[in-house]
Computed example of a mutant assay.
Amino acid sequence: MANKTPLEIIKDGLWLNNPALVQVLGLCPLLAVTSTVVNALGLGLATLLVLMGSNLAVSLIRNFVSDSVRLPAFVMIIASFVTCAELLMQAFTYELYQILGIFIPLIVTNCAILGRADAFACKNPPHLALLDGAMMGLGFLVVLAVLGGFRELVGQGTLFTDMQLLLGPGAADWAIRPLENYPDVLFMILPPGAFIGLGLLIAIKNGIDNRISQRQVSEVKEPAITGSKRVRVTGQVS
């Protein structure tokens, strides 16, 4: 893991080792707040900020902290960045902060953040640790936003409602309602809908990965088959 290139880190965070779809970490906030896109984006951006800051800080102190106090030090660092994110949300997006409630402080216990600090940041230089935090946080944010959009669209028949809570008054008219008189599907807004939505996303990702792997296997087999045919033809001619 210490020898990963920046391109491998980007691929890991966004797809191959996505914290939500592959590692399946941070499910508590992921399933709880993704009833709308704005809620998902709010939590996702806070998690991204904390993940980048904690990864960078852990990497900077990695040579000065002994193994006996490593985890407590990581938790203190993460808690500090969570406090900063919480104060920023209280100052600039207070209504959204009230909606997200306890799930902002719970970022401290997010296994995805603590796991990256222990598995990657404490073993790599600051620039790679910062990139890993950015990509893992961005991968988590994308899954949150997609799941939030899916649940909001199916559950309420709308998309991008209340975006002004995050982006200000200019985003108040961003709401999209594809169908008029849409009957709300309460099931998708409740926690069971979150499990179903996440399961569908994981299934889609696994299906794409399987198709890619099958295509790669077929591309490897075709030259081998072609080469063996050439050998047989050559042998017959001789």
Rank of each mutant, 00 (worst) to 15 (best):
A46H: 09
L48F: 12
A79K: 04
S68Q: 07
N55S: 07
I61K: 06
E8C: 12
P29V: 10
G53N: 13
T36S: 07
L7S: 15
V38K: 05
L71Y: 01
G13K: 11
Q23L: 06
S35T: 03
T83R: 12
Q23N: 09
V50L: 02
L71E: 13
V38R: 07
V82K: 04
P72R: 13
T83V: 13
L60R: 14
I10T: 11
V22Q: 07
G44M: 11
E8F: 11
V65N: 05
V33R: 08
G26P: 05
L30C: 04
P29C: 08
A20Y: 08
V38S: 12
V38M: 02
L49H: 05
L56W: 15
S68I: 04
T83L: 12
A32R: 10
V69L: 06
A57G: 07
T34H: 08
L14A: 13
N55G: 03
T83C: 14
R70E: 14
C28T: 14
I9T: 10
L30F: 02
V22G: 06
N63L: 09
G53H: 07
L27Q: 01
L30Q: 03
T83G: 13
L71I: 11
F74P: 00
F81S: 04
T34K: 01
L71D: 08
L21A: 07
V69Y: 01
V33K: 04
C28Y: 00
V58L: 09
G53T: 09
S59I: 09
